[in-house]
Amino acid sequence: MKFTILIICTLSCVIFSLFIGTVDLSFIDVLKALLGRGTDTNNIIIRELRLPRSLTGAVIGAGLGASGAALQGYTRNPLAAPGILGFTACAALGAVIALYFGFYKWIPLAALSGTAIGAFLILKISGNRKSASTLILAGVGVSALATALTGLTMNFSPNPWALSEMVYWLMGSLSDSQFVDLLICAPLTIIGIIMLTLIGPDLKTLSLGEETAVSLGVSLGRLRAILIIGTALCVGSGVAIAGAIGFIGLFIPHIIRLIFGSDPIKLIPLSAISGAGFLVFADIISRYLTGPGTQLYLGILTSLIGVPFFLYLAIKETKV
């Protein structure tokens, strides 16, 4: 029942988002445009603007939710989030460097390259050491380095316009999403979510502690490598398209755990589904609140919606 409600909520958000925008369209208009039988303008609005935006949001939200759940399972810490491994910062650095040189079309590739370098560094630094704390330390180090280099790049920004582009890009937005973005983002994110879902049983065993997990046949090296690559694919492809969108990876698995329990086998796919719904919902709100000449960036909104709810849950849980 709870699962059905979750699916309905997520699908409703995606469908509802097709009706949101500066041009009011009826249900029939949207349906016709989806089938390619609407007016030319409506077809463009739905098929080239709103649908790619909704689907890209859903895919990115799913990747952030799944990677947050997997990382919280691996570190056995509900405060772990995708940013902890430094991939958000690495992808942001790649994108900011592309903006520095004015290579706007290359932002996704630059962000993905940044993530790949970050993943390589973390795999190398955490090396054969099997402990989760080594991985977190490696992630924090790489994240701090990437953040410093992003700051450096912005510091030497060639002109104020490039700097403002960088700042706005870092706030995260789906407003420029196109189908080509979805084609870059979706396959990588889906592969990442599948990888993370497949390590669910090992993450569940890890809840008994690293030593017991090893004694039960879990290979910690293999588990960590899949976790790093799966998270890099989800986070890197999301940041590459929409910029830095925070808090979903922390907040969504936390809520899902309260509703569905802490089993990572269920938690990872369920966090993916609800992450998809939540990001599309946040994007709907951002479109509602955005007037002509202004834009409320999605990265800001996800935190503004998420933080109070998260704090409410944290206080409630502490009282229990």
């Binding site: 056995r76 497949l198 669910g200 049983p201 569940k204 065993t205 809840s207 008994l208 502690g209 030593e211 017991t212 004694s215 039960l216 046949g217 879990v218 755990r257 329990g261 802490s262 089993d263 086998i265």
Partner: peptide, 29 residues
Amino acid sequence: LAQNREAYPSMPVYEIVELGRAPYRGSLG
């Protein structure tokens, strides 16, 4: 059986015992 009594705090007992079958389970648990 490790010395430290470690398990996910909110995990139900049955699911913890079930983890003993980890070496035998399928790819989705």
